[in-house]
Design a protein around this nucleic acid. Structure first.
Lengths: 200, 200, 200, 200
DNA sequence: CATGAATGAGCGTTCATTCAT
DNA sequence: TATGAATGAACGCTCATTCAT
């Protein structure tokens, strides 16, 4: 239990510190201070600095993926699923702002282990969007001329950029609901089979 | 002429090295080697490592902004303007893949000078999208319930994420035209005043 | 205790290295090697290279000033006080030859922080001489036509130059006592009210 | 002639720059700028940075030594000779303040070539004082219990320290004459055979 | 002779990691 | 387990010196 606590405390501290200073500028001692442990203690729980970053990804994103998948399984309509995904993602990013920053910044770093994570675990998360779209296409709800992999990028990219409105340096009054509505207003109409295209 | 060449050579080398290794992992000596100059020579043209990164932003992005604005001035229809913007952006990113990577990675770093650049010069670039949308709304072409600033983020985020399909680690066959068509297929329909909404 | 030791060890090592090579030619790694610590360890105890030099001044000279002032308080006769000052200074310089060299070399450097130290803390030390002379003048023992501030410079300059006879490159057989006697033989007669001047 | 001029200009510039910034902090480009020549030009006249410093010593001090020796040859009385030496030295130091600073700072550096210069050429200059004292002792004018070599140090040290009253950071109203009088008032009485010591 | 752009060796400093306690 | 002092490899940057023009 105590171990769990310390591991968790370090992950939380690292998330905060990485968000504020960026992975490379963050010092292990910053994380240790934030977590209220000694520098050396961190190495009892993590192999090295990279390992902390990867653990932040694995564990924190893991929770989001899990809860998102759970919710999606309760719903059949791809339109509703897309709505749930967007809403969930934006909620998570707003709720855990530090994690949001870390993901936006560090997940793009061109380092082997990060790329590996991105190309495996994380791509499963964005892959959910492509799956939803494919389903919608099968059901005749979404236009078939759209490539699911490109549409996935459109939607994830939009969500990712939108979630930056809550970053520290910006002042914004948008609520998660407003933004979710906006993005769905665009994308659902953007990808749905419209009357005119049906007719055309 | 000679000076021009060396400055340019270093910028090009730095763009490549930053793209491959990231700003923090990139060594000045890596850039020097890539540019085929001595380490010290770099400091005849730039104040420090950050200055190189900012110069990459300022100069390379500057060119893109300029040529984009030029093209947009020749066109009145916001729908066409959006098409031009998307096409231009994707073309630029595909053509200058290293720059694309640097922008995607480093422009998000939480460092003062980078934030400053992002919040001033670079936001002018993405601001173009918001302007186009506002125009379209005024002309009754785009739905007025969409917030131009959020729509801007949707579209830029999508373009940004889409342009990653050409990154080194990925193999893709999509052409710029295909992707432009896809993104427009989604967004133009997504933001346009539709018959049904007109009717409703 | 351990910390105390390491701080002290580094100060001692730095004094020796600065004496031998001069501040600018001395390398941090030279000091580290002399102190038998790692380069990085030095930065646990000092902010930077300058800080080491200033600490050498502050701490080592501090000790001398303190012990000199202590002895002087036990004596009323300015002639005896001058004797004590000279004797103490020469003893200190001979005993701590490295410190002597560092003072003679580095205290003159035209750098802001060094000047600051010289103009504040160190000038208190040489100021003792002026004070003794002023006292002697008040008591009618020293000639009043002498400016205490100039006489102070005469005496300190003489002591400073005399203490160089023990420097490494020179071979000398003079004892502290001999030199003290010589300098007093000159200065006491030189500044005392003489019979003739009394008569005149 | 042109060469002579440039050589001289560089020496003068170097003296000024070394005085202000110290030898190690001074950059070749500082000297070049001060002398209004290109960096590379300096290497047409001097082998390296040290060589410039040594040349400053050799040439500028050379002039002082020469003129001092010339004046001294016109005078037989050691008391007058000492007066001339002190007066000349202080005049030179006040007149050429930059040189004064360079001598006070750099002549003490523990570097081989500087030591060499100090122990050969420069010691001839201070040796003049010892010679004067020896003469005075032979003629029964100065007390024989004083070691000429120590007295030399006393007097030179005093002059050296006194000449610092004119340094930039200090404000002083003392004239050369006042200071010469003070130092002679001390030293001549201090080293002369006094009535009492004659009688004793 | 004169230039100043180019060079690259060298050093102060940082900080991830280790390990004696 | 936990600590934090100690380590030392690594790198950004400077600047004396060179050399093509």
């Amino acid at each position: 239990m105590k171990v769990e606590n310390k591991h968790t405390k370090i992950i939380a501290a690292a998330t905060k510190v990485f968000a504020k200073k960026g992975f490379f500028t963050a010092r292990i001692s910053d994380i240790a201070k934030e977590a209220k442990v000694a520098d050396g203690t961190i190495y009892l729980y993590f192999n090295n600095k990279y390992d902390i970053l990867l653990s932040v990804f694995e564990e924190e994103v893991g929770k989001i993926v899990e809860s998102t998948e759970k919710l999606l399984r309760l719903e059949d309509d791809p339109r509703r699923q897309l709505e749930i995904f967007c809403s969930q993602h934006l909620h998570s990013m707003k709720k855990n702002r530090y994690l949001a920053e870390v993901l936006q910044i560090e997940l793009r770093q061109p380092y082997k282990l990060i790329k590996e994570y991105r190309d495996t675990t994380f791509s499963k998360y964005t892959g959910i969007i492509a799956e939803i779209i494919r389903n919608g296409q099968r059901l005749g709800l979404f236009r078939t001329e759209l490539h699911p992999d490109l549409a996935k990028r459109c939607i994830f990219g939009a969500l990712d950029e939108l979630s930056r409105v809550w970053n520290a340096s910006l002042e914004t009054n948008y609520t998660v609901e407003e933004i979710t509505n906006q993005v769905l207003a665009i994308f659902l109409i953007g990808i749905e089979v419209t009357r005119s295209s049906e007719e055309g």
